[in-house]
Structure formats: structure tokens, C-alpha cells
Amino acid sequence: MSAFISLLKRDLLLAVRSRAEVLQPLFFLLVVVSLFPLGLGPGPALLARIAAGVIWIAALLASTLSLDGLFRADFDDGSLEQFLTSGHSLSLLVLAKIIAHWLTTGLPIVLFSPLLAVWLNLPREALPVLVKSLLLGTPVFSLIGAIGAALTVGLRQGGQLLALLIFPLLIPVLILATGAVSAATDNIGSSAYLLWMAAYAVLMLTLAPFACAASLRISLS
């Protein structure tokens, strides 16, 4: 457990040290979202209708951008070999890294989502659901994305491949989350969607660290 906490602390410290890397996905998110009104026209009704989908797709792209680097630094400098040989459970160490990743990329997206919602004229009653859906969905991005990142860590064209690997797997999150927001917009209950998202997040929290550890073992061999 002390290894788990020490690794989590170390990753957060490293994130603080290299702020630019942490902030880039967030700026990317803001830029991508701002492109949609520019490309589709500023009509409030249209923006309100597409708001949830745009925010979610932008969040997906921003997460993927940051996921590419999740294990790369540790792979390049040999830290991953140290994790593997340390005798600690690799799944647990991987989970620490995933949590650190979510805290530095997923959580800022959640915190910035009200701003994006205002930009895109999302109805006010749908905002809490959007925030809740992001809270439940972005951890799944980090969890499933980590598997892809672990499989592509040592590869040259890792970034593009990572997107190809994880986008299809993230479709359920996208569907459930935008479904929840549009249900809230239409004033029908959105809790069914959110509960499904929570169930999916728990499932992935259980399985992904193991898959991720197995992937890292393959990538290191």
C-alpha cells in the first residue's frame, strides 16, 4: 500500500513539475469546443442540441491526447521495469498511475465543463447531469485508455494507433453520457443512464488494472 501511495504522490508531483503537459489537453479541449460554433454557426438552438455530444467528443479527444504519455515516460526511463520487478502487484501500481492521470486530466475536464456548457448554450437544467456524466465517464476513459496506452507504449506511431484501439471501446460511454444529457434536456429522467454509467465504471475499475498490467508485461518483453 505504501508503494501505491508513494507512486500516486510521485505522479502528482511530476504533474505539478511539468504543468504545461497537464494543461495542454485542457487547452486542446477548449479550442476544439470553440471550433464548433465557428464551423456550424452560432445559432443557440442548434448549439444547445449538439452541446452534450460536442463536449463529450472533445473530452474524448483531449483524454486520448494525454493518455499517449501515460506510460511513455516511465517506459523510457526504466521506471516500468522497476515496477515490474519490485514484487509489488503491478495491477495496483497501474491503478495508482490511472488515478493520478484522472486527477490531472479527467477532473479538470469535469471542472471546466460548466464553462463549455455556457459556450454551447446547454439548457441550465441539463448542466448537473452533464457534470455527473463526466464524473462517471472520464474515469472510464482513463481506465480503458490505459490498456491501449500500455499496449502501444513502446511503439513508434503509438498515438494514432492508441486512438484506433480505444475509440471503439469508448462508444458505450459516449452513447450513455449523451443519452443522459439529452434525457435531462427533454425533462425525462436521466438516472437510468447514469446508473448504467456507474455500473460500467465499476466494471472497468475491476478489470482494467489487470488487463493493463498484462499489457505492460507484454510491452516490456
Binding site: 480503458i144 490498456i147 499496449l151 484501439l165 471503439p168 471501446l169 462508444i171 458505450p172 452513447i175 450513455l176 460500467y200 478489470l207 488487463a211 498484462a214 499489457s215 507484454i218
Partner: peptide
């Protein structure tokens, strides 16, 4: 390994 991860997600993708 990727195929295994995919097969776990496949029913969920279909359902969604």
C-alpha cells in the same frame, strides 16, 4: 490481449 478486452466490451457495445 486486445481481442480479449474487445470481447468483454462487445456485448456492452451492442447493447448501447
Amino acid at each position: 490481449l486486445l481481442a480479449l478486452v474487445g470481447v468483454v466490451n462487445l456485448p456492452i457495445i451492442h447493447f448501447s
